[in-house]
Simulated assay, not measured.
Amino acid sequence: MRIVIARCSVDYIGRLKAHLPLATRLLIVKADGSVLVHSDGGSYKPLNWMSPPARLSAAPPDDTDAKAGIIDVWTVQSAKSDDRLVIRIHEHIHETSHDLGVDPGLVKDGVEADLQRLLAEQIHTLGDGYTLVRREYMTAIGPVDILARDADGSTVAIELKRRGDIDGVEQLTRYLELLNRNPLLAPVRGVFAAQQIKPQARVLAADRGIDCLTLDYDAMRGVDNSESRLF
Protein backbone atom coordinates (compact mmCIF):
# COMPACT_ATOMS: atom_id res chain seq x y z
CA MET A 1 0.00 0.00 0.00
CA ARG A 2 1.26 3.43 -1.01
CA ILE A 3 0.20 6.40 1.13
CA VAL A 4 0.72 9.93 -0.15
CA ILE A 5 -0.22 13.25 1.42
CA ALA A 6 -0.21 15.97 -1.22
CA ARG A 7 -1.72 19.28 -2.27
CA CYS A 8 -3.65 18.32 -5.34
CA SER A 9 -6.73 18.78 -7.50
CA VAL A 10 -8.70 15.79 -8.74
CA ASP A 11 -10.89 15.27 -11.81
CA TYR A 12 -13.04 12.23 -12.51
CA ILE A 13 -13.70 11.90 -16.24
CA GLY A 14 -16.10 9.37 -17.73
CA ARG A 15 -19.81 8.64 -17.54
CA LEU A 16 -19.88 11.26 -14.78
CA LYS A 17 -17.62 14.25 -14.31
CA ALA A 18 -16.52 15.55 -10.92
CA HIS A 19 -13.91 18.07 -9.81
CA LEU A 20 -12.13 18.51 -6.49
CA PRO A 21 -10.32 21.88 -6.31
CA LEU A 22 -6.81 22.29 -4.98
CA ALA A 23 -6.44 21.17 -1.33
CA THR A 24 -4.30 18.96 0.89
CA ARG A 25 -5.51 15.37 0.65
CA LEU A 26 -4.60 11.78 1.46
CA LEU A 27 -4.06 9.54 -1.56
CA ILE A 28 -4.14 5.76 -1.05
CA VAL A 29 -2.93 3.39 -3.74
CA LYS A 30 -3.72 -0.24 -2.93
CA ALA A 31 -2.14 -3.40 -4.28
CA ASP A 32 -5.41 -4.42 -5.93
CA GLY A 33 -5.20 -1.35 -8.20
CA SER A 34 -7.72 0.84 -6.43
CA VAL A 35 -6.93 4.50 -5.75
CA LEU A 36 -8.79 6.49 -3.09
CA VAL A 37 -8.78 10.23 -2.40
CA HIS A 38 -9.52 11.21 1.22
CA SER A 39 -9.92 14.46 3.11
CA ASP A 40 -9.55 14.96 6.86
CA GLY A 41 -13.31 14.58 7.32
CA GLY A 42 -16.18 12.53 6.04
CA SER A 43 -15.37 9.49 8.16
CA TYR A 44 -14.29 6.42 6.17
CA LYS A 45 -15.73 7.44 2.80
CA PRO A 46 -13.32 8.78 0.15
CA LEU A 47 -14.08 11.98 -1.75
CA ASN A 48 -13.43 10.16 -4.99
CA TRP A 49 -11.92 6.86 -6.05
CA MET A 50 -11.26 4.39 -8.84
CA SER A 51 -12.18 0.78 -8.24
CA PRO A 52 -10.02 -2.11 -9.48
CA PRO A 53 -9.02 -3.28 -11.98
CA ALA A 54 -7.26 -0.04 -12.83
CA ARG A 55 -3.81 1.14 -13.88
CA LEU A 56 -1.97 4.10 -12.39
CA SER A 57 0.53 6.02 -14.48
CA ALA A 58 2.49 9.11 -13.43
CA ALA A 59 3.82 11.70 -15.89
CA PRO A 60 5.48 15.12 -15.72
CA PRO A 61 3.15 18.06 -16.36
CA ASP A 62 2.79 19.66 -19.74
CA ASP A 63 3.75 23.33 -20.17
CA THR A 64 0.31 24.61 -19.19
CA ASP A 65 0.15 22.51 -16.02
CA ALA A 66 3.74 23.38 -15.13
CA LYS A 67 2.95 27.09 -15.30
CA ALA A 68 0.02 26.44 -12.93
CA GLY A 69 2.45 24.98 -10.36
CA ILE A 70 1.72 21.31 -11.02
CA ILE A 71 4.71 19.01 -10.51
CA ASP A 72 3.19 15.60 -11.20
CA VAL A 73 0.12 14.22 -12.96
CA TRP A 74 -1.39 10.86 -11.99
CA THR A 75 -3.81 9.19 -14.37
CA VAL A 76 -5.76 6.24 -13.01
CA GLN A 77 -7.40 4.43 -15.93
CA SER A 78 -10.18 1.90 -15.41
CA ALA A 79 -9.56 -1.41 -17.16
CA LYS A 80 -13.27 -1.96 -17.81
CA SER A 81 -14.35 1.44 -19.16
CA ASP A 82 -13.10 4.79 -20.41
CA ASP A 83 -13.44 6.28 -16.91
CA ARG A 84 -10.30 7.80 -15.47
CA LEU A 85 -9.18 9.71 -12.42
CA VAL A 86 -6.70 12.53 -13.02
CA ILE A 87 -4.80 13.80 -9.97
CA ARG A 88 -2.69 16.92 -10.46
CA ILE A 89 -0.16 17.24 -7.66
CA HIS A 90 1.17 20.65 -6.66
CA GLU A 91 3.18 19.56 -3.62
CA HIS A 92 4.31 16.24 -2.17
CA ILE A 93 4.10 16.52 1.61
CA HIS A 94 4.65 12.94 2.69
CA GLU A 95 4.90 9.50 1.11
CA THR A 96 5.35 5.98 2.46
CA SER A 97 4.80 2.44 1.24
CA HIS A 98 4.08 -0.76 3.16
CA ASP A 99 3.59 -4.38 2.13
CA LEU A 100 0.58 -5.48 4.19
CA GLY A 101 0.62 -9.06 2.92
CA VAL A 102 -2.48 -11.23 2.53
CA ASP A 103 -5.32 -10.27 4.84
CA PRO A 104 -7.03 -13.23 6.55
CA GLY A 105 -10.41 -11.49 6.37
CA LEU A 106 -12.95 -10.50 8.97
CA VAL A 107 -13.70 -13.05 11.68
CA LYS A 108 -17.11 -12.29 13.11
CA ASP A 109 -17.81 -12.89 16.77
CA GLY A 110 -21.32 -13.62 17.91
CA VAL A 111 -22.59 -15.18 14.70
CA GLU A 112 -25.61 -17.46 14.78
CA ALA A 113 -23.45 -20.60 14.98
CA ASP A 114 -21.84 -19.27 18.18
CA LEU A 115 -25.23 -18.44 19.68
CA GLN A 116 -26.53 -21.87 18.80
CA ARG A 117 -23.57 -23.64 20.41
CA LEU A 118 -23.76 -21.56 23.58
CA LEU A 119 -27.51 -21.93 23.99
CA ALA A 120 -27.26 -25.68 23.45
CA GLU A 121 -24.60 -25.84 26.18
CA GLN A 122 -26.69 -23.58 28.43
CA ILE A 123 -30.14 -24.89 27.62
CA HIS A 124 -31.25 -23.90 31.13
CA THR A 125 -31.33 -20.34 29.80
CA LEU A 126 -34.76 -21.23 28.45
CA GLY A 127 -35.98 -22.22 31.91
CA ASP A 128 -35.65 -24.85 34.62
CA GLY A 129 -36.03 -28.44 33.51
CA TYR A 130 -35.19 -27.90 29.83
CA THR A 131 -33.16 -30.60 28.09
CA LEU A 132 -31.49 -30.58 24.69
CA VAL A 133 -32.76 -32.99 22.04
CA ARG A 134 -30.33 -31.92 19.33
CA ARG A 135 -28.90 -29.02 17.37
CA GLU A 136 -29.68 -28.60 13.66
CA TYR A 137 -32.75 -30.85 13.77
CA MET A 138 -33.38 -31.55 10.09
CA THR A 139 -36.79 -31.11 8.50
CA ALA A 140 -37.97 -31.27 4.91
CA ILE A 141 -37.65 -27.47 4.62
CA GLY A 142 -34.38 -27.00 6.50
CA PRO A 143 -32.80 -27.45 9.92
CA VAL A 144 -34.34 -26.18 13.14
CA ASP A 145 -31.54 -24.51 15.11
CA ILE A 146 -32.30 -26.27 18.40
CA LEU A 147 -34.89 -28.86 19.38
CA ALA A 148 -35.45 -29.22 23.12
CA ARG A 149 -37.95 -30.46 25.69
CA ASP A 150 -39.30 -28.39 28.55
CA ALA A 151 -39.87 -29.49 32.15
CA ASP A 152 -43.18 -31.13 31.16
CA GLY A 153 -41.56 -33.09 28.35
CA SER A 154 -43.16 -31.04 25.58
CA THR A 155 -41.19 -30.36 22.41
CA VAL A 156 -39.79 -26.86 21.87
CA ALA A 157 -38.31 -25.59 18.59
CA ILE A 158 -35.89 -22.66 18.91
CA GLU A 159 -34.95 -20.38 16.03
CA LEU A 160 -31.82 -18.28 16.61
CA LYS A 161 -30.86 -14.96 15.03
CA ARG A 162 -28.36 -12.25 15.85
CA ARG A 163 -31.01 -9.66 15.04
CA GLY A 164 -34.55 -10.93 15.11
CA ASP A 165 -37.00 -9.56 12.57
CA ILE A 166 -40.29 -10.63 11.00
CA ASP A 167 -38.58 -12.98 8.52
CA GLY A 168 -37.18 -15.02 11.39
CA VAL A 169 -40.62 -15.38 12.96
CA GLU A 170 -42.04 -16.46 9.61
CA GLN A 171 -39.28 -19.04 9.28
CA LEU A 172 -40.01 -20.48 12.72
CA THR A 173 -43.75 -20.54 11.92
CA ARG A 174 -43.08 -22.76 8.91
CA TYR A 175 -40.97 -25.12 11.01
CA LEU A 176 -43.68 -25.35 13.68
CA GLU A 177 -46.37 -26.11 11.13
CA LEU A 178 -44.28 -28.98 9.78
CA LEU A 179 -43.13 -30.34 13.15
CA ASN A 180 -46.65 -30.40 14.54
CA ARG A 181 -47.62 -32.89 11.84
CA ASN A 182 -45.29 -35.42 13.48
CA PRO A 183 -47.23 -37.30 16.19
CA LEU A 184 -43.97 -38.21 17.93
CA LEU A 185 -43.16 -34.53 18.47
CA ALA A 186 -46.53 -32.75 18.65
CA PRO A 187 -47.48 -30.53 20.27
CA VAL A 188 -44.46 -28.37 19.42
CA ARG A 189 -44.22 -24.76 20.55
CA GLY A 190 -41.68 -22.20 19.39
CA VAL A 191 -39.14 -19.88 20.94
CA PHE A 192 -37.65 -17.04 18.87
CA ALA A 193 -34.26 -16.14 20.37
CA ALA A 194 -31.94 -13.32 19.33
CA GLN A 195 -29.55 -10.71 20.68
CA GLN A 196 -31.95 -8.03 19.49
CA ILE A 197 -35.60 -8.52 18.55
CA LYS A 198 -37.48 -5.87 16.63
CA PRO A 199 -40.82 -4.72 18.06
CA GLN A 200 -42.70 -5.84 14.93
CA ALA A 201 -41.21 -9.32 15.30
CA ARG A 202 -42.33 -9.49 18.94
CA VAL A 203 -45.89 -8.55 17.96
CA LEU A 204 -46.02 -11.17 15.21
CA ALA A 205 -44.51 -13.84 17.48
CA ALA A 206 -47.05 -13.13 20.24
CA ASP A 207 -49.88 -13.33 17.71
CA ARG A 208 -48.70 -16.80 16.70
CA GLY A 209 -48.11 -18.09 20.21
CA ILE A 210 -44.32 -17.98 19.90
CA ASP A 211 -42.24 -16.94 22.91
CA CYS A 212 -39.40 -14.43 22.48
CA LEU A 213 -36.07 -14.63 24.29
CA THR A 214 -33.36 -11.94 24.22
CA LEU A 215 -29.89 -13.44 24.53
CA ASP A 216 -26.97 -11.74 26.30
CA TYR A 217 -24.07 -13.03 24.23
CA ASP A 218 -21.33 -11.65 26.51
CA ALA A 219 -22.92 -13.18 29.60
CA MET A 220 -23.35 -16.53 27.84
CA ARG A 221 -19.67 -16.69 26.93
CA GLY A 222 -18.61 -15.65 30.41
CA VAL A 223 -17.09 -12.23 29.76
CA ASP A 224 -19.84 -10.21 31.40
CA ASN A 225 -21.07 -10.75 34.94
CA SER A 226 -24.53 -9.23 35.33
CA GLU A 227 -24.27 -9.45 39.14
CA SER A 228 -21.33 -7.01 39.16
CA ARG A 229 -23.17 -4.30 37.23
CA LEU A 230 -24.30 -1.10 38.95
CA PHE A 231 -27.23 -0.76 36.51
Rank of each mutant, 00 (worst) to 15 (best):
K30G: 00
A186L: 06
R25S: 10
G209F: 05
P104M: 10
R55A: 03
S39D: 12
L132W: 06
A206T: 11
D11C: 02
E121V: 09
L178D: 00
P61M: 00
D62C: 11
D103P: 09
I158S: 03
G127C: 08
L22W: 15
I93T: 04
S78P: 15
R2Q: 09
D145A: 01
K17C: 04
V35S: 15
I5D: 12
E112D: 13
D167M: 02
D152E: 15
G42F: 04
I210K: 04
G33V: 12
I87T: 03
R229H: 14
I13L: 09
V4L: 15
R25W: 06
V29L: 13
R162I: 11
M50I: 05
L160R: 12
R15T: 06
K45S: 11
D211A: 01
E112Q: 13
K161I: 06
A219V: 12
V191P: 06
T64P: 07
N182V: 04
L126T: 12
R189W: 01
H94D: 14
P187K: 11
I158L: 10
L132F: 08
L22G: 15
G127N: 06
R221Y: 06
L184M: 13
F231G: 12
P21D: 13
L230H: 01
L184D: 14
M220C: 13
L106V: 15
A206E: 15
P52K: 05
D63W: 01
I158T: 09
L132E: 09
